[in-house]
Design a protein around this nucleic acid. Structure first.
Lengths: 336, 336
DNA sequence: ATTACGTATGTTATCGATAACATCGTAGAC
DNA sequence: GTCTACGATGTTATCGATAACATACGTAAT
């Protein structure tokens, strides 16, 4: 069924049907009512593929996340989806699985569908995507970090500074034998940034870095449970395990509790991200607070601004930092 | 840039370029190599919108989930995405937010993009989507439950039977003052099914149901933390809180621990779904085991079968049950 | 009364790839 | 050596909506 069929049925032209479906175009109220009624009765669903080809507006934006399973990214995706919904745009979601090659493949596949904007989460990209993105001439937004050399717009924070701040605060609390537990793979440069931040904070306090790693990202609760062994094998005198993320920290805490070790007391643990679990867990987990939803909303706002700017010309790159502050909780409390 | 441009550059026709990009069509190896080289050099990305309109194959499937934030659904989505990737299909993801109206809106919006299959997660649908789905003439797969009146294909399990089985097992362990904690809103009929299963198991044991509810779905850890109060206010003698999901159960356990109550011992808690947290938490949480990934993979397989069947005609509805068995863990262990 | 303009609608061309059909050459069969 | 068949490629029509332009009519301004 095509617009043509609706039109013929009403003795009007397809163009009028098309116009009746756009709220801003001029159609007599009676005509519009008749069209909508016919569409409803016939259960007609317009073919947006044809519409997109003709109008060269696809009506969606694409977002690539490293892991949909990560509640943080899904919260960002959700918030962005809602923001776009208000602009009657849909969101196409891609999962890169922390893999640059897969990301490049997805970028190509998505660009083939002509998104009106694209949001990238990982910051270390396959260099081949840059020319493709440039040619696409659409807003590109990198989120969840502050890349050294941004492609275009950015909404994020410095993972390095954030982790450095957290570790510095913990050193301030009196900890010194702090061991870092994170991913081995440098493909996740957010993880690498955090590790670097840890090293800097240690160095600033005159302490040697103590690094341990689980496998490749994402860092899961199960990784944390196993990770405690790794940490103790390498640095038996560890008094605080600084984890690359909250779920990993939760796993470490669980492993401690299984051994009958008090957290804090026998062992302190910190995370990163302020996942829900960090607030609910007993003990509550010291972490770095990030508002994942805000990142999504800001990205949505930038898309809106970019479209407005395109009309007025002058699409300047927007760098929008979001806060990422240490939040000390029970898991690293010093025995009072 | 169009295929035409690539073609002209090589002195061939656009059709040959098109063919060079399909691996199964007959093109001279030298020609194909030249085309691929030119495409690479020019950074050409085919316009799939035009391709879809022409070939009437959009190359993607759509899935609607109630909540992307729920790690279970995101695992299903992930597994399905991988399964489809092998068929060079992409996955368009929609979030219904446990809202039938929103679901209907998304179904319409997705169908406008002509997906080649559609997967629905919630089982209580807005009746208006049925004619639209029927007209679309594509495979429809309902997942995560066994609907009383399936639209077409199904991959899932009976939430009602699963919860009944779990509660029966717990009654078998010697519990009787079991209070159910779940969502209030009937829009989430999976939750309603589980509640019903609980009621049946209690009735079968001659016990009166003890129902408490948090707000509308999804049930979060925070809801669980608050939920303990609700339970104790209504049924102060509760010895086991049976929760609609694992995160909720975790919240209840955390609330108990904050009060200094031993779990189990002073209070037992069960969940549903076998989320990672159920295995890692201390104590590990008694739950119903579901393989969320398997549901996604099976759905992917059904899409494959449906396409094969379409060629051979005869698209019979496939009902594929997946296991959902009680798994008793420490959180409901009786003091030995 | 006439011009001008705006609203409601129709007509035609177009978006870019691909299906379907047409053509040409050449390798192998007899 | 001629015929057949198929592999490689070109040509044309098409998918369905919409942009752009065209038309017709009515109303307000002069």
């Amino acid at each position: 069924m095509r617009m043509q069929d609706i039109a013929r049925r009403l003795g009007i032209s397809a163009m009028t049907v098309s116009r009746a479906l756009k709220s801003d175009s001029s159609v007599a109220p009676a005509t519009r009512a008749a069209v909508l009624k016919a569409i409803e009765e016939l259960g007609y669903v317009p073919n947006q593929i044809a519409g997109s080809l003709s109008s060269s507006r696809s009506g969606f934006a694409a977002i690539l996340v490293p892991s949909l399973n990560n509640p943080h990214f899904s919260e960002t995706v959700l918030a962005l989806g809602n923001a776009l919904h208000d602009r009657t745009m849909q969101l196409l979601i891609g999962n890169t699985d922390y893999d640059r090659h897969k990301e490049a493949e997805l970028v190509r596949a998505f660009l083939a569908r002509k998104p009106e904007a694209i949001i990238l989460t990982s910051d270390g990209h396959d260099p081949r995507i840059l020319p493709m993105l440039a040619k696409a001439k659409i807003p590109v937004i990198e989120i969840w970090d502050l890349p050294a050399r941004p492609i275009q717009h950015v909404v994020g924070f410095s993972n390095q500074l954030a982790m450095r701040g957290l570790i510095a605060a913990l050193i301030g609390e009196g900890y010194s034998r702090i061991t870092y537990l994170g991913e081995a793979d440098d493909a996740d440069t957010r993880g690498a940034s955090r590790r670097l931040g840890y090293c800097e904070a240690m160095a600033a306090a005159g302490l040697a870095p103590r690094l341990c790693s689980i496998g490749r990202p994402p860092a899961t609760m199960s990784d944390g449970e196993r990770g405690l062994e790794t940490v103790l094998a390498a640095y038996p005198d560890t008094e605080l395990v600084a984890c690359v993320s909250d779920p990993l920290a939760f796993g470490v805490i669980a492993a401690c509790q299984r051994r009958g070790w008090a957290v804090p007391g026998r062992m302190a643990v910190s995370g990163f991200g302020d996942f829900e679990i960090a607030r609910i867990a007993v003990p509550a987990i010291t972490t770095v607070q990030i508002d994942a939803g805000q990142i999504g909303r800001e990205a949505g706002a930038i898309i809106g601004e970019a479209f407005k700017a395109r009309r007025d010309a002058m699409p300047a790159a927007i760098i929008r930092p979001v806060p990422a502050l240490p939040c000390l909780r029970a898991s690293t409390a010093k025995a009072g």
